[in-house]
């Protein structure tokens, strides 16, 4: 499950950030997201969260998304994995 979540999340980020094949694989847990990538503005974050919900079949509440959630790839992955945990 964890590997699948990781793989799917990288796929979503590749679509949102227009990453070329292989670039999404280079994301590490420390890779910065919101606040580090100028193209990831509030509208893009909104689209990213909605796509995560749709593809990973989870619900993200209003009070769960903030700058910390999207600070790094690792924080986002940890959040999504916890949401998908049985």
């Amino acid at each position: 499950m964890a590997q699948t979540t990781d793989h799917m999340l990288r796929g979503i980020l590749a679509d949102v950030l227009a990453l070329k094949p292989g670039q999404a694989d280079a994301l590490t847990r420390a890779s910065g997201l919101f606040g580090h990538l100028p193209e990831l503005d509030s509208m893009a974050v909104a689209g990213l969260l909605t796509e995560i919900e749709d593809r990973l079949d989870i619900t993200i509440d209003d009070d769960e998304f903030d700058g910390e959630l999207l600070e790094t790839y690792g924080t986002l992955l940890g959040f999504v994995e916890a949401k998908r945990a049985p």
């Binding site: 509030s42 909104a46 909605t50 209003d62 903030d66």
Partner: peptide
């Protein structure tokens, strides 16, 4: 999506919306 974009932007300014 539009409401989320507003919530994210406002939260950066310290204003909470739902």
């Amino acid at each position: 999506m539009l409401m989320r974009a507003r919530i994210v932007a406002m939260r950066e300014g310290g204003i909470e919306e739902t």
